[in-house]
Structure formats: C-alpha cells, structure tokens
Design a protein around this nucleic acid. Structure first.
Length: 259
DNA sequence: ATGGTTGCCGAGCAA
C-alpha cells in the first residue's frame, strides 16, 4: 500500500498538478495540506472520478487538510483534540480499510513565524496537543501513519543552508525538541529510517530562485508507529514534481507498506 | 537589510 503526504498550496490552483501526479504515482492514500478551501469548494467529484474516496477538513482562505483514498475510509475525525477554541483546520484522521486497517492522519503543523511571538506560542502548544494525540493513537492495535507538513527541519542535514534557518520557527531548538518528543513516544520518521544521507528536500520557496539553486528544506514527514514501521518497504520524495507546470512549493513524500 | 513569489480572493495576510 502506497501512502503519501503532499502540501498542495491551494486545491483550486493545483487540480492539474495533483491529478497528473496521482495518475503517474498511483498512491492508494494521500494526505493533503493547505487545500485553502472550504469543504463545499473542494473538487470532490473530480477526485472521486479518479477512483478516490474524499474526506476534507477545510476553512476559508487558508490551512485545510484532506485525505484521498482508493480504499474505504472509516471513523473520520476532524480537528486536533485538546483545545475547543482552536478553529484552524490542520488535522484529519481516518481508518483506511484494507487487508489490514491503518489509522492515518493528514496534518498541517503551524509554521510559527515570527518567533518569538504568539504564532510561535501557538506552534509549540499545538505540538504539545499533537504529542498527546499521537500517544493516544499508540494504544490501539492498528498501525498508525501520521503524514503531513510538519513545518519542522529535524536536523541540519535536512536543509541546504542550515545557517539561514537558525532563528526560524522551523529550525529553532524548541521546535526540533518538540518534534523529537513525538518521535520518542515510539514513532519512526519513515524517510530517515531508509536514508541517512543529506541533500533530500521536500520544500523549495517560491522566492529568490530557491528551486533553481536547490535551496530546499525537508519538512514533510510520515511518522510510523512500530506496527507500521515493521511493514515499511520503501520511502521516497518525488522531487521532480517541483519542476512541473504550476507546481506547489512542496513535493509529495511517500511510503510503501506491506499491507 | 531588503526583496524576492504564490494563492487565497479581491485587501492584505500567510507562507
């Protein structure tokens, strides 16, 4: 089973690019981020026509997450628990019903810039809440896959120019420590499990020729519970998507599970 | 330091 995460940066602007990638890569399950659309505005029928079940958790103008799945989705929940006043659409969960059920989340972790400030406080408190939810998910029997735009550069090797990010919310020690605390619950970051090398990125800024200079960062991750990690066959980044027509600033990251 | 770009929508905000 091929499962992916893809921050598409606006579903309306990315219908073509996303559809082209779906046809080429044929993923079974995709977590989307930054759909930047309300649920009613999401082109659900288009992707249903391509053979996917569609579940969305959107809001007007920005944020918004979704799950596309060729297999049926059950027990869909929307929103990250822990703060009833949080109205930002950044989390959706569902159980993928295949030969083996998999609990899958699509998440859009807050950017947090500028740091320090209220946006950074929100990022860190959101990560606390995510850790609580990630811990709760480990008490179930099913393999767990937490896929999304984490807005965290885990290590210096995950940036072409780590020195340019030292004061950025994506790379501050507190952000990286909060990410490690989630891993330490018992999650493995899939790409790092398979590849210890440097120079692999999932995001290149639209500005300042970042793509042309390969000035990227790796911030899109799939976290696997032990049961999921045991099934891992492959993990990869579809870098070439960034060079396509009207690309997102992120590219898809995917895993293959023996499930 | 600044500016550089894109998408949401129709003015700035978010990234």
């Amino acid at each position: 089973m091929k499962l992916a995460t893809f921050n598409i940066n606006g579903i309306k602007a990315r219908i073509e690019a996303l559809s082209d990638w779906l046809k080429a890569a044929e993923p079974d399950v995709v977590g989307l981020q930054e759909i930047k659309s309300v649920d009613e505005g999401f082109p659900r029928e288009h992707f249903e026509g391509m053979g996917y079940h569609v579940e969305t958790h959107g809001q007007k103008g920005f944020n918004g997450v979704a799950i596309l799945s060729k297999l049926p989705l059950e027990d869909v929940t929307r929103g990250l628990p822990g703060d009833p006043d949080d109205e930002q659409a950044r989390w959706i969960e569902a159980t993928v019903v295949g030969a083996r059920a998999i609990r899958f989340a699509s998440l859009y972790l807050p950017n947090g810039n500028p740091a320090p400030g209220p946006k950074y406080d929100y990022k860190l408190s959101w990560m606390d809440r995510m850790r609580e939810r990630a811990a709760a998910l480990l008490t179930t029997e099913d393999p767990v896959v937490l896929a999304g735009d984490y807005n965290v550069i885990p290590q210096p090797i995950d940036a072409a120019k780590p020195e340019a990010w030292v004061t950025d919310a994506l790379f501050l020690p507190e952000s990286r420590a909060a990410f490690r605390r989630i891993l330490n619950l018992g999650y493995a970051e899939a790409f790092r499990l398979r590849d210890q090398g440097s120079g692999h990125y999932s995001f290149w800024d639209f500005q300042a020729g970042a793509w042309q200079r390969n000035n990227g960062i790796r911030i899109d991750h799939l976290l696997l519970s032990a049961q999921a990690a045991d099934l891992l066959q492959a993990a990869a980044i579809d870098k070439a998507v960034r060079g396509g027509e009207k690309p997102s600033d992120h590219v898809p990251v995917w895993i293959d599970l023996d499930a």
